[in-house]
Design a protein around this nucleic acid. Structure first.
Length: 305
DNA sequence: ACCCAGGCGCTTT
DNA sequence: AAAGCGCATGGG
């Protein structure tokens, strides 16, 4: 093992590095609906990000990463995993309410990733009225058909990059529909064309305020408030972007409004006001809690809503 | 056989 | 302004 550096990355070998990260839960981070490209692999997870096949495994107080191709610089992965982010400091800004504390306890160590804007945008266009397992299937099919193959270690199955906007923009709606995405096909195609043509500049959005960036994203076909907020949170890292999907709405109504049906506009105002400067992070814990551990607190749908 | 899924966009009231 | 409804497809 060679020297450890201030960025917390320790080079182990040409294709292997360790990232210091206390309290990092790979399971809930990689497999809870923010990214759709990771698969369980041995004791860890395998996936493709930043054009590279990677295997990740948590051990002791860090993450061991292995690639198929030698790496000189691992910053692409530190950025994706956000290993340098102080999770404890973020959680310390949360309001001291029982629901949030319970949800944090349920999946301690869950992080928000910093994803590629195009992959994130395209994936969430495909997410509407789909279960997470199905989104994963569609994305996998799309990548295997139209993504570039990436190098994998000997003996591993082939892996693919997420197809570029240019590649998808050149397809027909019929070809996209063949990837099982149904009525989402024209939306993905239209957005791919807007991005490929430069009509929408995803790189530039990072320089805007969260409100302005949201306004730009919503212009794209198939992108409303919810999907825009997913992209703002998961790809651009705007910490107050707060995706209000059916599950989070359910959680907010259940735990903060005694099960009453609440208008979307009021839920937006509440979440912006209540959860603080990292409300998007809080949202992720609530989402996970209501869908998994929180289930036992919701024996059945209340009948008064 | 049903019901619903990390919504959006258009139509009706 | 707010509520209703169709949109493809597949898993439980």
């Amino acid at each position: 093992m060679r020297g450890s550096r201030p960025d917390g990355i320790t080079i182990i070998s040409s294709c292997e590095a360790a990232f210091a990260a206390r309290d990092y839960d790979l399971e809930s981070t990689l497999n809870s609906g923010q990214s759709f490209r990771w698969n369980k692999h041995g004791c860890g997870w395998a996936g493709v990000t930043a054009g590279r096949w990677v295997h990740l495994e948590y051990c002791a107080d860090g993450i061991i990463a292995k690639t198929a191709v030698p790496q000189n610089d691992w910053s692409w992965l530190a950025n994706y995993l956000q290993t340098q982010v102080n999770l404890h400091a973020i959680i310390a800004t949360f309001p001291d309410d029982q629901t949030l504390q319970d949800s944090i306890r349920d999946c301690r160590g869950m992080r928000l990733l910093k994803q590629d804007p195009w992959e994130c945008l395209a994936s969430f266009i495909l997410s509407s009225t789909k279960q997470i397992v199905q989104i994963r299937q569609i994305v996998a099919l799309l990548c295997s058909r139209y993504g570039e193959p990436v190098r994998t270690p000997h003996g591993e199955s082939v892996a693919f990059n997420f197809p570029t906007a240019e590649r998808l923009a050149a397809l027909t709606e019929t070809e996209l529909r063949a990837c099982k995405m149904g009525f989402r096909a024209p939306n993905l195609l239209g957005t791919a064309k807007a991005v490929a043509s430069g009509e929408c500049n995803l790189t530039q959005l990072a320089q805007l305020t969260v409100e302005d960036a949201r306004g730009e994203l919503i212009k794209l076909p198939g992108v409303g408030e919810k999907i825009a907020n997913c992209v703002l949170l998961y790809a651009y890292g705007f910490p107050t972007a707060f995706p209000l999907d059916v599950w989070v709405i359910r959680a907010l109504e259940r735990f903060y409004f005694r099960g009453h049906k609440i208008r979307l506009e009021r839920l937006r105002a509440f979440s912006a006001d209540h959860f603080g400067p990292y409300s998007g992070y809080a949202q992720q814990y609530l989402f996970h809690w209501i869908r998994t551990g929180g289930k036992k607190n919701i024996p059945n749908e209340s009948k008064d809503r």
